[in-house]
């Protein structure tokens, strides 16, 4: 039994912006105090609306940026810049837009081989090509696609190319940043099935970032709900979807349209919009939009504890449920 693939403790990333001769620099708190861990072969889903910090988290975990506070380990190795070079073979990412993430001037074969060229220069060109073809077969691309260019492929097939490129180094963790939200429904299910098959055969851990709750409900083992850069609820998929605790999770679930015209809608209408990350309110960040907010919520920020199913809320929903 091996330990978790990733363990993150209080990860934060703040950006400084603006500033000038007469203006003070402002701090954008894109991500604050995110803690989680992922076991091999499991999927952790990060859910939230735009601006909640989920893509910033992806950039930290894939070693694109350094956290400004907190730390995390990948396979037990501390992820500090000195170790980045060796860790980068273990974490790979698939981006949302398969039209923007593939180099249009490279052939599919070259795109898939490039990580090997950089990270494994000891492998000969012929072996590299063999490996790439093997990987193409695994993701459901045909051998003749090897010499083609990305523009000859549809969105779903491009996403397969991006997945092949990410997996060629045999990483332990794959970060999926909205992998299916740019795809049509009939193609989306093909890619989701592929991801599930690959996870099983390669024992991959997934950090699955999405705003689509029906997709998350299908693929995730555990779920973290984020709001304004902070995790507000964490728990197993069953617990979060059947007995959500944080009012924001409840509102998010009720706002997601269900493909069932007979369902009785009990929609919680959230007033207003996400506050700017430059001016995050004191106290609970969700308090200005919350229908349960009390004075205490506006003064003091509720913390996320270490329980299996935790919510950063003073007055959680479904409090009796201890699952």
């Amino acid at each position: 039994m091996s330990g978790p693939v990733v363990t993150a403790r209080n990860l934060s990333r703040h950006y400084e912006s603006g500033g000038g001769m007469f203006k003070e620099r402002q701090v954008v708190r894109a991500l604050s105090e995110a803690s989680f861990s992922i076991q091999p072969g499991k999927t952790l889903a990060i859910v939230g609306e735009s601006g909640c910090g989920k893509s910033t988290l992806a950039r930290l975990i894939t070693l694109i940026e350094e956290p400004t506070a907190g730390d995390f380990t990948i396979n037990g190795v501390e992820a500090v810049p000195e170790n980045w070079d060796s860790l980068r073979t273990q974490v790979q990412i698939v981006f949302q837009d398969p039209y923007g993430s593939l180099n249009l001037r490279h052939r599919v074969g070259a795109i898939i081989e490039e990580p090997l060229k950089i990270k494994r220069p000891d492998i000969s060109a012929a072996d590299r090509a063999d490996k790439a073809r093997e990987m193409m077969a695994m993701v459901g691309l045909r051998p003749e696609h090897y010499d083609r260019f990305p523009h000859m492929f549809s969105g779903g097939q491009r996403q397969r190319i991006a997945i092949a490129r990410a997996l060629i180094l045999e990483p332990k963790l794959l970060v999926l940043d909205e992998p299916v939200s740019a795809l049509d429904l009939s193609i989306q299910s093909q890619v989701l099935n592929l991801l599930l098959d690959l996870q099983q055969s390669m024992d991959l851990a997934y950090l699955f970032i999405s705003h689509d709750l029906s997709v998350v409900r299908h693929v995730a083992d555990d779920v973290v709900v984020m709001y304004l850069g902070r995790p507000v609820e964490r728990g197993s998929k069953e617990a979060v979807f059947s007995a959500p605790r944080h009012p924001y999770t409840v509102a998010l679930l009720s706002a997601t349209p269900s493909a069932d015209p007979a369902r009785v809608r009990k929609r919680i209408k959230l007033e207003g919009e996400l506050p700017s990350p430059l001016a995050i309110p004191d106290g609970c960040p969700f308090a200005p939009r919350c229908w349960k907010a009390q004075d205490r919520c506006r003064a003091e920020r509720p913390l996320l504890d270490d329980a299996d199913h935790a919510a950063a809320c003073f007055y959680p929903e479904n409090p009796d449920d201890t699952a």
Partner: peptide
């Protein structure tokens, strides 16, 4: 029918029913 079956929320198993091929 195939489109409705491919919806993740209607899935009964871990593997989703798919529509092979593309438009």
């Amino acid at each position: 029918a195939a489109l409705l079956a491919a919806l993740p929320e209607r899935a009964t198993e871990r593997r989703l029913p798919t529509i092979p091929g593309v438009v």
